[in-house]
Simulated assay, not measured.
Amino acid sequence: MTAMSTRAKIGVVVASAVLLGSVAAAYVAMAAQPAPTPPPASGDQAVTLTPGSRLLAITDRHLSTVAAADPTGPRTVSGLECLRVYAAAGTGVCLKPETAWSYQVVVLDAALRQTRTIGVPGLPNRARVSASGRMVSWTTFVGGDSYTSSGFSTRTGILDTTTGATVTSLEEFAVRRDGRSYRSPDVNYWGVTFTADDNRFYATMSSGGKRYLVRGDVAARTVETMRENVECPSLSPDDTRIAFKEAVDADPAKGWRLSVLDLASMRVTVTAETSSVDDQAAWLDGRTLAYTRRQSDGQPDVWSVPADGSGTPKLTIPGAESPAPLS
């Protein structure tokens, strides 16, 4: 097979981003570029994932931290290159380049030592760690699936860091849709978020041109649909609410509104963020959401907004993306 040119590869990746609406075209273009030299670290303290009053983010494609009390202030930047990060309870996940066109899921300890590495297909898209630090998940953007007209979809995997058990793709799980067993070759998933018990999770499932919030069970290897038009769920610290991006008029081409679903009442609250948010938001605490918003030239900033629909969006970490609290 003749190797694709760099120009052709970039064209294919950008086209796939438009199809799924799960990766911004600007982000994909930037992911194909060489990593910039990391900015100098502030002070002498090394970056760690030790729980504390700091926020984790990516600065110029490198893992970095800032003080939660002063997120626009000085930041500490590591030499570890990541395209997506998340951390909890001293365990981190970094989706990083292996070569120019291959990527790895790297599990980190609190000192950024690599404890496990998994090669994955496609471009990094989403990453999560359960609150206990035990469970790790990732989503990548892949090509070659015959069931789509362009051959592009996603792959979402889960790793149990305690047992080493690995789910390479959630597509292996049995599906119940609207209370009935459901099978279709076009099922795919993205954006896992774990509950407190480390076994159950929520994610987005797409099939037949629709996107669903699903509730999953790792041990039983099952998922069940809950609601349509819910993408990139993020479970609140108390497991009662899900932040998500909701397609305007159920059409991703019109953009997304950052919203919050109450799991008891299934009532949706739209946040005060009116810009289109193509991200899996993070809960900084029980009241505040953080997320990436891109400028017109594709450069990222981390913003935050109250989860209850009040207030106004606030620029939180300029020139950064992929935020997470170091809880």
Rank of each mutant, 00 (worst) to 15 (best):
F194Y: 06
S207Q: 11
T166R: 12
T156D: 07
D198E: 07
R113T: 10
A127E: 04
Q114M: 07
H62G: 15
M135L: 05
L159E: 07
V77I: 11
Y202R: 04
T117K: 03
A203L: 08
G191M: 01
G151L: 04
F173D: 09
H62T: 15
E172T: 15
G179Q: 13
Y182N: 09
L95W: 03
T156W: 02
V120W: 02
L83G: 03
R113W: 03
V66I: 11
V107W: 00
L83T: 01
S78M: 10
V105W: 09
T148R: 04
L123Q: 10
V192S: 05
S206G: 12
G157N: 09
W101I: 04
L80S: 11
S184E: 03
A88W: 06
S181V: 09
T72R: 15
V105Q: 08
L80G: 11
T99W: 04
P71M: 13
T99N: 08
V106Q: 12
T99L: 06
E171D: 13
A88P: 07
D198M: 05
W190Q: 12
E171L: 01
T156N: 05
A87R: 06
S181A: 15
G79S: 14
T163E: 01
G164H: 08
R84A: 06
A100W: 04
V106S: 11
T117W: 06
D145W: 09
P185V: 03
T117P: 05
L80K: 15
S132P: 00
G144V: 04
A111F: 02
T204F: 07
S150P: 00
P74Q: 13
A88R: 14
V192R: 03
A131F: 02
W101C: 00
